[in-house]
Design a protein around this nucleic acid. Structure first.
Length: 796
DNA sequence: TAGTTGGGTTTTTTT
DNA sequence: AACCCAACTA
């Protein structure tokens, strides 16, 4: 990428004073602008690097910016404050949390931790999980925090409503518990940092004085409290430059407030706005696709990406019978193109909506021996063995973190059971002391007879660790803990196949600690634990010649020459909930996600979909994604070598066929010639209700016969629900496996390969009906087959 | 106390 | 399908 700025970019770089909103479309060089701006401030305006702050969302983005700025600025670059929102807050709170009643060595609770805490509270307050789910309460609490509403205020406002009042009491108890444990959740980091700045004039002014120029990346993803944070820091000078793209706002579920960017000019009336619309990343075809999708959103700042790149390769869309075949295709296509020298693995990504979809694709990558990285799934730091070791470290670092202590008191097993723990909890609650303090009082606790000596040993062990922590490095401390507790040996002793992996993970943790200590020798144990709490998986993906598998969310900010977007189905992407009546806002967010996905591609973009897929143990039959329908048909590769209707699939006409069929409709499936470079296998939309017979349909050639009008987008059609009559080797669609077949013993049926036959027996199997058929063709004779798989169709 | 089993549940995305 | 939890058994 050239380092020469275009006019708009230059303007954005040089407008250093006052509030500035840079609306930066995907691939428009926003990072380039930000880094140049920092360099400009230092070199041309004489600003001290110490006075500059740049805030990002991920550690990865922060790291990349740091690297680029280092190269441009040289000496002094290290004193620029570049970090994420959460890390910035931690940094402030590590110095001043005592002003808010916390100890400066507070721990950070992740989502799992907060769940455990909430579970305990609900038990105590006798809120049953059936009445209000813990997840519901936690997300309410998160909302409330993000809107600056504290338990006291919420208790008042909710007093009239029973259910709300219970949530309020849970909120209050939760907050007390965290404070008692000297812990903060992710939201607290922001909330408390803002509180700190608001209530402490000296702190606020010292930061305001230092941070004279503030830049915020991915501004569209900020939430209300984050806005508050930067607004306070910007003080009265308002030297705040935010960069974002409202079309890429995809974190509403996490509290992101799209109004922050839409209303920037209301918050700062003197704000200047600069639009960056020239895209340096993608071909025109890809941009056209992106633009044509996002155009369907209503609440957005009008803009349109353009490029002077050539129009480029056409888009591909492939639809398959099953998610398995979809995955198979993606892997084989990548493999083939790589073999032909048309694709580099490290320039390739497979994107999907949900982490669950990764599994099948990953399997196919393995069997095609394609090197790959998967982001997401179970976060490294969320794994049991890692959380165990971290809980030891937290127990050493922050003695009042009851959650950590309770986690490890019997891990590895040392014969301290539930009854004993409850006793100790009661004792601690009566005296309002921490769980660990209660352990130290074990002599005075009744009914702890047998466990007593075990607890004494535990307490002694932790005390020894604490003493050692004064001198040992984090890596040494971890090793010492593992050795003293025989942790590794215990893993190997009682767990099975996963022992290897667990051991490797623990070793990985040690090397991560080593890396941390080298990078930040002053950080210590608290620093390491804080860092670990705030890293995400995408942050430490190893590079190399590897295909990246990630969710669409995970792909934000990245770019690849080749992008595959899998699972293009209504109900998957867009997600089911967002397709329901009244959820238009959610649907728009999904559409932005589609926009993000499409704009990751530089040169080649392939969409795939499956007609049927297993979701949470149940078979789903989904229509192709409505987002595909929003892309002009002309942008796709169209030549189809003699596509044939070879199957009909039934789906639920009104709600995307979630296993229970109400209204049934049928649509023809066009055969796929996978592997052909020109293959285009869209749903053929030929079924109009009038035409009831198909021999074959050739896309491209007989569009008219297939029900298309010129200019019509492929996929725009209305199924009539009339059952299609089918001739010539076309079988009826897959009924859901396990559904009773609509033929009976004695009926004549047709099989796609074996031809005509007579049903001899129908037996209900464990998962599906087993059907025995005697085929007319003696070659095949008697066959037993699964009804859902055999796709037998009744005939005369 | 610990291991097993059966039953019930599951928003999708994550700092 | 996968996970978690409660109840049951050794």
């Amino acid at each position: 990428m050239s380092d020469i700025l275009n006019d708009r970019q230059r303007e954005a770089v040089e407008l250093t004073e006052g509030p500035l909103l840079i609306l930066a479309g995907a691939g428009s060089g926003k990072t380039r602008v930000l880094t140049h701006r920092i360099a400009y401030l230092i070199d041309k305006c004489g600003v001290d690097p110490w006075n500059i702050m740049a805030i990002t969302f991920t550690n990865k983005a922060a790291g990349e910016m740091r690297e680029r700025v280092d190269k441009m600025v040289g000496a002094g670059a290290e004193s620029i404050w570049i970090s994420t929102f959460h890390s910035s807050c931690v940094r402030m709170l590590r110095r001043f949390a005592d002003r808010l009643g916390y100890d400066n060595s507070f721990t950070i609770y992740d989502t799992d931790d907060t769940k455990s805490v909430m579970k305990g509270i609900m038990k105590r307050l006798q809120i049953s999980n059936e009445d209000i789910k813990e997840r519901t309460i936690l997300s309410r609490i998160s909302d409330l925090k993000n809107n600056g509403i504290w338990p006291d205020e919420f208790t008042l406002s909710s007093s009239g409503d029973f259910r709300e009042a219970r949530i309020a009491s849970a909120y209050r108890a939760y907050q007390n518990e965290l404070l008692k444990n000297n812990a903060m959740d992710f939201d607290d980091l922001l909330v408390n940092a803002v509180e700190l700045l608001k209530t402490n004039k000296d702190v606020r002014e010292s930061y305001q004085d230092r941070l004279k120029y503030i830049m915020v990346d991915e501004y569209q993803d900020t939430n209300t409290i984050q806005f508050e944070f930067i607004r306070i820091l910007a003080g009265t000078k308002h030297n705040i430059c935010v960069v974002g793209d409202d079309d890429q706002s995809i974190y509403k579920f996490r509290g992101a407030n799209i109004r922050n960017i839409l209303d920037f000019e209301l918050h700062f009336p003197e704000a200047k706005v600069i639009r960056l619309e020239q895209n340096y990343r993608s071909t025109q075809v890809i941009l056209d696709a992106a633009n044509s999708v996002i155009r369907n959103n209503s609440e957005r700042k009008e803009k349109s990406l353009w490029t002077d790149r050539a129009s480029g390769n056409a888009l591909h869309f492939m639809q398959f019978q099953t998610a398995y075949e979809e995955a198979e295709f993606i892997a084989s296509d990548i493999k083939r193109r790589n073999r032909e020298g048309k694709l580099h693995y490290d320039e390739t990504a497979v994107l999907y909506r949900t982490n669950a979809q990764a599994r099948l694709i990953e399997e196919q990558m393995v069997s095609s021996s394609i090197p790959y990285n998967v982001v997401g799934g179970v976060n490294f730091y969320a794994r049991k063995e890692i959380k165990d070791v971290l809980a030891y470290l937290k127990t050493v670092d922050n003695g009042v973190d009851d959650l950590a202590v309770k986690r490890i008191i019997n891990v590895p097993r040392r014969g301290i059971g539930g009854t004993t723990i409850s006793r100790i909890e009661e004792y601690a609650a009566e005296r309002n002391i921490s769980f660990f303090n209660a352990l130290e009082d074990i002599d005075y606790i009744e009914g702890a007879g047998r466990a007593k000596s075990k607890i004494e040993n535990f307490v002694t062990m932790i005390r020894v660790f604490r003493a050692k922590a004064e001198t040992l490095s984090v890596t040494e401390l971890i090793k010492d803990i593992l050795k003293s507790t025989d942790y590794i040996e215990k893993i190997e002793a009682d767990s099975d196949e996963q022992a290897m992996e667990k051991t490797e993970n623990v070793e990985e943790l040690i090397s991560k600690a080593a890396i941390y200590e080298e990078a930040d020798p002053e950080g210590g144990l608290s620093g390491f634990l804080a860092e670990v709490a705030l890293v995400s998986d995408i942050d430490d993906i190893e590079g190399g010649e590897r295909v990246l598998l990630t969710t669409l969310h995970g792909a934000k900010g990245l770019e690849f020459s080749n992008v595959y977007i899998a699972g293009m189905e209504d109900g998957i992407f867009p997600g089911y909930v967002s397709t329901l009546e009244g959820n238009e806002e959610d649907l728009e967010e999904e559409r932005r996600l589609a926009y993000v996905g499409i704009t990751r591609a530089k040169d080649n973009l392939t969409f795939t979909a499956a007609r049927s897929r297993m979701v949470r143990g149940e078979m789903q039959y989904n229509k192709t994604s409505r987002f595909l329908n929003e892309i002009p048909r002309e942008l796709f590769v169209e030549k189809v070598p003699s596509a044939k209707v070879y199957d009909l699939v039934e789906y639920d006409d009104d709600s995307y066929a979630r296993s229970s069929f109400k209204k049934k409709a049928y649509e023809p499936v066009v055969s796929l010639n996978a592997g052909e470079d020109t293959s285009y296998a869209g749903r053929d939309t030929s079924y109009s209700g009038k035409k009831k017979e198909y021999e074959s349909v050739v896309l491209g050639k007989s569009k008219k016969a297939a029900g298309y009008d010129k200019g019509q987008r492929y996929g725009d059609y209305k199924p009539t629900g009339v059952k299609a009559l089918v001739k010539g080797g076309i079988t009826k669609g897959i009924a859901g496996a396990g559904e009773k077949p609509d033929y009976e013993v004695g009926d004549k049926v047709r099989h796609i390969k074996f031809g005509r036959g007579t049903v001899k027996e129908i037996k209900k199997g464990t998962k599906d009906y087993e059907v025995t058929v005697t085929f007319d063709d003696e070659k095949y004779g008697n066959k037993i087959m699964m009804a859902g798989f055999a796709k037998l169709v009744k005939c005369e």
